[in-house]
C-alpha cells in the first residue's frame, strides 16, 4: 500500500514536533526511518497508523488516495514496548483475527502458521506474561503479520532485543514483504540494521525529513551534510 503524506504538521504543547511537506512511501518496499530521539519518527508512524491526529496535512493511502478509515483493517503497527494481553500466546496472536470475526478453524490454522514463522510454535499455550522480552516482541510481530497487512509499521520493534530475536524478526519481515508485496515502514536507531534491511532510507531530524533515497545513495553518497555527520559520528544503538 502506497502512503502519500503532504503538509503534515503536529505540535505538542505548542512545540512543533513534525513538519513534513511531501513524503511518499512507495508500495512493496521496506522503508527505514532513522534519526535521533525526539526527531518525530514515532509521531509520524502514530499518525500513519491512526493513533494520533495531525494538526494539519493529509495522509492518503493506496493508489486511490483513500482515507485512514477506509483502509484501517489493512494497517498494523508493532510498538517498541508491545502490550501483550494477559492470556496465552495463542490468544494474543489470534486477537486481531477474532476481532475480524474469523472462524475458529481458520484462526487456529493462521495462528499456528504465524507462530511457526517467528519460532514460537512450542509457546502457543504459554501465558504471554511468562515470556522474555525477545519472545514477547516476536509474539507482537506474529500478531501483526497474521492479519496480512498491506502496510506494516514497526516502531523500534527490535530495540534492546537479543541478537537471536533481532535476526528472527528481520528475517520474518523480509520474508513477509517478499511473499506479500506489502509496504513496510521500519523505525530504527541502529544504522547497521538499516543497512541490512532497508530499500529506501529516510533521515529525520527536528520533525523534518533531512535525507531520502535508496540505501546505496543514503549510506554511500548522502546529499545532506547533516546526514554525513549523523552517519559518521553519531552511531546510535
Amino acid at each position: 500500500m502506497k502512503v502519500q503524506i503532504s503538509g503534515l504538521c503536529k505540535k505538542y504543547d505548542g512545540k512543533p514536533v513534525l513538519n513534513i511537506d511531501n513524503l511518499t512511501f512507495e508500495q512493496g518496499r521496506i522503508h527505514v526511518i532513522i534519526g535521533p530521539n525526539g526527531s518525530g519518527k514515532s509521531t509520524l508512524v502514530n499518525i500513519i497508523s491512526g493513533l494520533e491526529k495531525a494538526d494539519h496535512g493529509t495522509v492518503a493511502y493506496g493508489s486511490n488516495q483513500k482515507r485512514f478509515e477506509e483502509v484501517r483493517g489493512s494497517i498494523t503497527l508493532v510498538m517498541q514496548h508491545p502490550y501483550l494481553f494477559n492470556t496465552t500466546v495463542f490468544s494474543n496472536i489470534a486477537y486481531g483475527l477474532r476481532c475480524r470475526g474469523a472462524d475458529k478453524k481458520q484462526t487456529e490454522l493462521l495462528v499456528k502458521e504465524a507462530a511457526e514463522k517467528v519460532n514460537l510454535s512450542a509457546f502457543l499455550t504459554r501465558k504471554a506474561a511468562t515470556l522474555s522480552g525477545g519472545e514477547m516482541q516476536r509474539v507482537a510481530l506474529a500478531r501483526a503479520l497474521v492479519l496480512k497487512p498491506e502496510l506494516l509499521l514497526l516502531d523500534e520493534a527490535t530495540a534492546n532485543l537479543d541478537p537471536e530475536s533481532i535476526g528472527i524478526i528481520e528475517r520474518v519481515i523480509r520474508d513477509f514483504q517478499t511473499a506479500t508485496g506489502a509496504t513496510v515502514v521500519f523505525i530504527t536507531h541502529n544504522i547497521f540494521q538499516a543497512r541490512r534491511i532497508a530499500e529506501r532510507v529516510y533521515l529525520m531530524m527536528g520533525g523534518r525529513i533531512i535525507e531520502e533515497g535508496s540505501k546505496e545513495k543514503t549510506f554511500g553518497n548522502p546529499e545532506s551534510r547533516i546526514t554525513r555527520e549523523f552517519l559518521r559520528g553519531e552511531l546510535i544503538f
Binding site: T76, M79, Y83, F85, Y95, G96, C99, R143
Partner: peptide, 12 residues
C-alpha cells in the same frame, strides 16, 4: 496502551 494495541489490531 491496551486501547492503542487493540486499535492497531483492528478492534472497533
Amino acid at each position: 496502551l491496551i486501547q492503542k494495541t487493540a486499535f492497531t489490531l483492528g478492534a472497533n
